[in-house]
Design a protein around this nucleic acid. Structure first.
Lengths: 209, 209
DNA sequence: ATTTTTATACTGACCAGTCAGTTCAAAATT
DNA sequence: AATTTTGAACTGACTGGTCAGTATAAAAAT
C-alpha cells in the first residue's frame, strides 16, 4: 500500500516544514509587517535553517503570497459552509448572514495573526502581491455578496440595498469588532461577541430592551 | 522687536517644510508601508534634501508618529463637531450617530491615504509607535462610545448593547465600506455611500422597500 | 538512491542616520 | 545707506550596518 508520505504534490516532511514556516511567518509579519520581518527571523522561529526557506519557497514574497492564498482559502471555505448549513436547515438569509458572522468570528478567534496581517495589507497599493490579494479578497467578499443578492431576489432584503457596499460594511463590522475583542477584551466569550453583533445586524440597537 | 516670522513654536518656513514632509510621507507609507518606504523617497517626493528630514524630525519613526497624531487629531475633532452639531439642532442620538458616519466618510474622502495607513498599522504589535497609536485610537473611538452611552442613558438605545464592541463595529463598518468605495467604486457620490450605510445602521435592510 | 535539511560563509545592494559645509534673510554695526 | 554678523534652515556625499539571496559540503530522513 502507498505510504502516507507520497501524497499529491509533495512528501509529508516537506509539507510539515512548509506548515512550520507559514506559522512562523504569519505571527512575525502580523506583528512587524512584511518588510520589517527578516527571513532569518522566520527560519529561526520555525526552527529551521535559512537554506530550507529557499529550498521550499522561491523568495520571501512568494512565501508570503502562498501564505495569503492558504489563509483566505480557509476563510472562504468556512463562510461558504456556514451559509450552506443554514440553507440545509431551512433558515432564511438573515440566518445565513448571522451564521457567517459567527463563522468569521470563529476564524478570527483561531487565526488572529492571519487576520491582522490580512487587514494590514488589504488596502495597500504598489506591492508585489497586490493582485493576489485582490483575487483572494474578492473570493471572500463574494460569498457575502451572494447571500445578500439571494436575499434581495427572494424578497427577504430590501431591493434598495447596495449589495457590494453592504457586504463590505458587514465584513468591516465583523473584522474590526473582532480585532477589538482580541486586542482589548480577550477574556470575553465568542458567544458574547456574536450576540452583540447580531443585535447590531438586526437593528435591535435603538428601542428599549 | 520680535520678527514677524518667529511665531509661536516655529517659523513659517519650517512649518511649511514639515507639512510637505507629512504629505509626502502619508501617501508613500499608505502605498508601501512604513518599513518599505525610505527616507530618501520621502525627501524626494517632498522636494527637499534628506538632511532636511532629520533637521525637522528626530527620526523616521518620530516623523511617522507625529503624522499619526496630526491625522487622528483632525478626525477626532471632526467627529466631535458632528455629534455636537446634531445636539444643537435638537436631534436624537441616532441622528448624532448618522452625522458621525457622514463625518467619517467626509474625512476618508479627503484623506484616503491617511486612512489606509492608519488601518494598516492599527492592529500591529511590537512596533515603536504602538503606544501612540493606542492613545490616538482611543480618542477617536471614545467619541462614538460617548454618544452610545448617552443614548443608553437617555433610553434611546437598548441597555443591552455592548458599548465598546458596538462602537468598534460601527467604526469598522464605516472604515471598510469607505475604503471599498475609494478603492473599487470611486465614482460614487458621498451621499450615495452615506445612504447605504444609514440604511444598514437603522436596520432597514431586511423587510421590503 | 534520492530528497530534504543543516550549518556556515559570503556577496552586493540598500538604507537610516550623520556631519561638514552652504544659503540667505533679518539684525546689528558702522 | 552700506556693510558685516548671526543663526536657523537646508544640503548631499558619506558611513556603518543590515538583509535578501546564494553557495556548498556534509548529514539526515525516506
Amino acid at each position: 500500500m502507498e505510504s502516507s508520505s507520497a501524497r499529491s504534490g509533495g512528501s509529508t516532511r516537506r509539507e510539515a516544514t512548509r506548515q512550520k514556516l507559514y506559522e512562523a511567518a504569519v505571527t512575525l509579519i502580523a506583528e512587524q509587517g512584511f518588510s520589517a520581518t527578516t527571513v532569518d527571523e522566520i527560519a529561526e522561529r520555525a526552527g529551521v535553517a535559512k537554506g530550507t526557506v529557499y529550498y521550499n519557497f522561491a523568495s520571501k514574497s512568494v512565501l508570503f503570497e502562498e501564505l495569503l492564498r492558504h489563509g483566505v482559502g480557509l476563510l472562504t471555505a468556512s463562510l461558504r459552509e456556514a451559509a450552506e448549513q443554514t440553507a440545509h436547515e431551512g433558515g432564511g438569509k438573515v440566518d445565513a448572514l448571522d451564521a457567517m458572522v459567527r463563522a468569521g468570528l470563529v476564524f478570527i478567534d483561531r487565526y488572529p495573526a492571519f487576520t491582522q496581517l490580512y487587514v494590514a495589507e488589504l488596502w495597500r497599493t504598489n506591492r508585489a502581491w497586490q493582485s493576489t490579494l485582490m483575487v483572494v479578497r474578492q473570493e471572500a467578499v463574494a460569498v457575502v455578496e451572494g447571500v445578500l443578492r439571494e436575499g434581495v431576489a427572494g424578497g427577504e432584503f430590501s431591493e434598495e440595498i447596495d449589495v457590494q457596499l453592504t457586504a463590505a460594511a458587514l465584513v468591516g463590522m465583523v473584522l474590526v469588532a473582532a480585532l477589538d475583542w482580541k486586542s482589548f477584551q480577550p477574556q470575553r466569550s465568542l458567544d458574547d461577541v456574536h450576540a452583540a453583533l447580531s443585535r447590531l445586524l438586526q437593528g435591535r440597537v435603538s428601542g428599549r430592551a
